[in-house]
């Protein structure tokens, strides 16, 4: 068994034991923290496809996180006031059903990612980072100045949306749901990374010229990667909004893009469990340091700086390679 696999298994055991312990001890707050971790990790798994496999440094994944959130917010707010989204040319009504919201959230994110990706992929390097950031800011300012759905104040939902057969207001049941989705996303990521598509994407990251020379357009592969990546992050956005029963333009902000990036890099870029380790550490630090000092961001900054400067490859990467000679 490889070192990385051992680490992954250890991580899974810890992340399953903590909520189990919290459930037995009846500590709903810890369960909520675990749910938050799973959702943020899911957003990271999405970004990891573009960033880790494709080498596409998107500084605008908050767009998709926010779109997922607003899809949920808009559909649910119409459902709770019994007013249709639109009546002509055909009737669209709001909904409180999670599966439908998830489907629409991923579809909307994927569609927008297709447009943003097609434009952004004309550039590369720093320009790619900056153009994705610009699209993020566009959506952020649009959400702030669009009065129909709360504008700057955001949008509250009174009751969490429903999932057939589950009581989603029960912290344990909602947590299990998010864990299950995270599990599916991880399985999908590992399949994707080893598929011919994943290998091509990896090749296009390392040597676009050679990929082109064997007759594959890197553009197509990379665009498809951005679309899948965005769909998963969009799903995470919808779940995150449902966890808080609240959406606001903050979900679109560039700090959100930065944080999703932090999960991936803190954990290990391109590693299967990188985003999970990163999100778990982030939520843990936020909770532990946030209780110690109101200036906990200083410590987060120092840890982040330490990881970038001295632990290249993130937590999973560093642990998996310690003791081995670096190739």
């Amino acid at each position: 068994m490889s070192r990385e696999r051992q680490i992954n298994i250890a991580l899974v055991i810890v992340l399953l034991t903590v909520p189990l312990w919290a459930w037995i001890k009846d500590e709903p707050f810890t369960l909520t923290l675990c749910t938050r971790m799973a959702i943020l990790a899911l957003a990271g798994v999405g970004l990891n496809i573009a960033l880790g496999l494709g080498g596409l440094v998107s500084f605008g994944h908050a767009v998709f996180f926010g779109l997922g959130g607003y899809t949920m917010g808009i559909l649910a707010s119409h459902a709770q006031t019994y007013s249709p989204l639109m009546e002509s040319p055909f009737l669209i009504e709001g909904t409180k059903s999670m599966p439908i919201i998830w489907l629409i959230a991923t579809a909307v994110s994927a569609l927008v990612a297709f447009l943003i990706g097609a434009l952004s992929l004309r550039t590369s390097g720093v320009y790619f980072i900056m153009i994705t950031l610009a699209f993020g800011q566009m959506f952020y300012y649009f959400a702030i100045s669009w009065p129909a759905y709360g504008g700057e104040d955001g949008l509250s939902i009174y009751v969490r949306n429903g999932f057939p057969g589950l009581n989603t207001l029960d912290p344990v049941q909602y947590m299990v749901l998010t864990y299950a989705l995270l599990g599916i996303a991880l399985w999908f990521f590992s399949r994707l990374a080893n598929s011919s598509f994943g290998l091509t994407l990896n090749a296009a990251r390392q040597s676009p010229g050679r990929v082109q020379a064997v007759g594959i357009r890197p553009f197509k592969v990379q665009l498809f990667a951005i679309v899948i990546s965005a769909a998963i992050t969009g799903l995470a956005g919808a779940l995150f909004a449902d966890l808080n029963r609240f959406v606001s333009p903050t979900m679109f902000s560039w700090q959100t893009s930065g944080e999703i990036m932090i999960f991936v890099i803190l954990g290990g870029v391109g590693r299967l469990f990188g985003p999970v380790a990163g999100a778990a550490l982030f939520v843990f630090l936020e909770h532990q340091l946030g209780g110690l000092s109101e200036f906990w961001h200083i410590y987060l900054g120092l840890i982040l700086l330490g990881v970038v400067l001295f632990a290249r490859g993130g937590i999973v990467g560093t642990l998996a390679e310690s003791g081995l000679k670096r190739g």
């Binding site: 960033l51 930065g258 990036m261 890099i265 900054g301 982040l304 700086l305 970038v308």
Partner: peptide, 13 residues
């Protein structure tokens, strides 16, 4: 990527 992250960390600090 490393530069973005390290200088993001500097902002926090």
């Amino acid at each position: 990527l490393d530069q973005v992250l390290a200088t993001f960390a500097l902002i926090l600090i």
